[in-house]
Design a protein around this nucleic acid. Structure first.
Lengths: 204, 204
DNA sequence: CGGCTAAACGGACTATACCCCGGTTAGTAT
DNA sequence: ATACTAACCGGGGTATAGTCCGTTTAGCCG
């Protein structure tokens, strides 16, 4: 009853220069990521290369992991697009169980593809894998579970469990292996197990 | 064909002074933990209070999280005892499915009880919750799955999935709430969901 | 008991995430 | 156009995890 007509991304009042700097920092981070890898990327280095102050970097992203979470968010947008309004069975239109299976496969692929950023986006102080990552998966899985009409006692916790069951093997895999070999084979193995798991859980 | 007869705990050659210092550091850490909480415990502080050099602390535990992992390991010993040779249904003797349900309940209780240490034992660089924590759970679950004679395609990955499904809600819970209220209620809710999940997965 | 070596010790040193606050500027109301 | 204010910028400052290497000592052997 007061905000005029600003349904855009920026929640409210991110100043133009701030937005510009954020974009610029993200772009610079990607460059550095591409040429040196994630763990040598320091806040000072990023600030200097971007030609900005260190304080600015922290103001934008809060924490080191925050940068990678922001990058992952960015990459995830296209993925979410597919999930929310792409073609079935990933997008709407297919039966919930098919979508669940399809979603697991897609997410596994996405995370393996973006493994370096995903890994760096982890942070000991915020136990959940990444800022955006869990909510989306969990919400989507929760929604599909609702559509399935299961007679489980607590769909919310079940959604958390399944989300964890999807991410768990990936995290283990991302941390253990250096991913140089047979990424596809392991991905397929996890995808297969995901399918088996959800089929077991959802059959009546 | 060469090592004489040393089947003791210390793999080989942890010097007496080293062992003594490790114990002393662990004890000191527990004191500090009790009186100031986990996040104000610094490596320097621990070293100073223990009357040892900082280098020693790092030599023993490698990393800050390592200290908490060591403490958790220590606490976990009694728990493992119960699982490996305590009375059923947690210990051996009960049907595998009952043991699986019982194990989940016990682990939830254990982790909630030791929440502060468990939380501090997490570390962004080693994605799995804690040094000891995952292996034990996973191995045990894997074993029980084997005894169940499921026709799943990949019991190893299934074990990882279930371990994650057990830990996931806990981590979420440990990070979000400050646990001062209704710990028991939430624990019960997670335990209930765990039981439901494994029943769904294991029914034929 | 005296000497030898590998392991442990200590604490100064480095790197870097994160904080702070005085100065500047974008956005807006008059 | 001008003044006002809230937000942003900058970069030096602090705390602390983790490293290095010269020194000390435990365990053993002759």
């Amino acid at each position: 009853m007061d905000q005029p007509v600003v349904p855009l991304a920026a929640p409210r009042g991110e100043r133009a220069d701030a937005a510009r700097n954020r974009l610029h920092l993200l772009a610079t981070a990607r460059e550095m990521l591409a040429e040196q890898g994630a763990d040598t990327l320091t806040m000072d280095g990023l600030a200097e290369r971007a030609g900005l102050g260190k304080g600015t970097v922290f103001r934008r992203f809060g924490t080191r992991a925050g940068i990678f979470q922001a990058l992952l968010d960015d990459d995830e947008r296209a993925f979410q697009e597919q999930v929310l309004s792409g073609p079935p069975p990933l997008g709407p239109g297919a039966p919930p169980l098919d979508r669940l299976i399809s979603y697991g496969r897609a997410r596994i692929g996405f995370l393996i593809e973006h493994r370096e950023i995903a890994r760096a986006a982890l942070d000991g102080s915020q136990l959940v894998p990444a800022g955006s990552q869990t909510p989306i998966s969990q919400l989507h899985i929760r929604m599909l579970l609702g559509q399935l009409g299961l007679d489980a006692p607590d769909l919310d916790v079940l959604a958390v469990q399944l989300t964890a069951a999807l991410d768990g093997p990936l995290l283990l895999y991302l941390s253990a292996t250096d991913l140089t070999e047979a990424a596809a084979r392991i991905a397929e193995r996890i995808a297969q197990s995901w399918q088996d798991l959800v089929c077991r859980v959802c059959r009546r």
